[in-house]
């Protein structure tokens, strides 16, 4: 039995707030991806504590492995887009992507 369950979720909420704040206020695309990564980490902790609470660690671990893989793919694609956008616009500002035409 996991006695830390409420404490875990307190820290999960703090991590989620940190990532969400970064994604809301930042205009830098790399910072946005870092915020996304922090939110994914909070989801990872949430998954493992839920697995511990329901005593089903194998399912939790398999879901976490899939999640980590998806996270890596999203980050790789996003960073590739950032580098391409920097080469085209000379900036990593998210607002520069607003003037896409056609």
């Amino acid at each position: 039995m996991n006695i830390n369950f409420p404490l875990d979720w307190f820290f999960i909420a703090i991590l989620f707030f940190t990532g969400a704040y970064c994604m809301i206020v930042s205009r830098n695309i790399i910072k946005l991806l870092i915020g996304f990564e922090i939110i994914s980490k909070s989801a990872t902790i949430a998954m493992i504590t839920a697995g511990q609470a329901t005593n089903n660690m194998a399912l939790a671990q398999s879901v976490i492995i899939v999640m980590i893989m998806v996270e890596a793919i999203v980050i790789a694609s996003g960073l590739a887009l950032v580098v391409k956008s920097y080469r085209l616009n000379g900036s990593i500002d998210i607002k520069k992507l607003m003037n896409l035409k056609g």
């Binding site: 671990q61 976490i64 492995i65 980590i68 893989m69």
Partner: peptide, 17 residues
């Protein structure tokens, strides 16, 4: 994750993330 007895997820986290 290691402390929560989830070694496979921990290894993936350490190597990939």
């Amino acid at each position: 994750l290691f402390a929560y007895n989830a070694p496979w997820a921990a290894v993936f986290e350490l190597s990939v993330c």
